[in-house]
Design a protein around this nucleic acid. Sequence first.
DNA 1: CGTACGATCTGCT
DNA 2: GCAGATCGTACGA
Length: 203
Amino acid sequence: MKLQASYYLNDNVVSLAQNLIGKLLLTRIDGHLTSGLITETEAYAGVADRASHAFGGKRTARNEVMYHCGGKAYVYLCYGLHHLFNIVTNEEDIPHAVLIRSILPYDGLQIQLERRKCKIWLYPVMQGPGKVSQALGITVQENGQSLLGRRIWLEDMGILLPKNAIYSSARIGVDYAGDDALLPYRFYTTEANLKACFPIKSF
DNA sequence: CGTACGATCTGCT
DNA sequence: GCAGATCGTACGA
């Protein structure tokens, strides 16, 4: 089931980041359908969050889409070479976003491996926000895209992870954010946890 | 304008 | 464990 507009309007970006674990992220880019189950996310909680690009109400050409209505892609270039994919959430003018940090490949594994320039699949191959975008073909060209369209979207696969199968920690790489670097806004699960809860046994 | 740096990844030691 | 890649953005002069 494709996630609808109302899903992204949730005003609690932290609980939404947790809820996104186990959802399927799909792209149809360059004629290829590729997807992965989300295994790791981070919440960026708007103007009050020192780790967010929108901290203090900062609004620039780069982060403009964060201020749009929830349900769009915010993709930006990091370190000059990595395209980082975020889901914009909450209503217009409230710049909340969830960074997708890791996936477990689902559709189009071979294409994903080719994009990643890997011969075989090993666990860390799609672990890391830059790797997720590379595997799914997402670049800054996708910035501002609606997640209700047919280029990038999410689906609920009916995976119901128990709370104790989702872990939390501080966010990665945000040391500059002072006390906010310690907030437990990162959520993740394991491949084994996911497979144990997946309704289709063949997976 | 000039410059410093980043929500990272890879390959080499 | 560490340096290098690589460039758009932000911010100060």
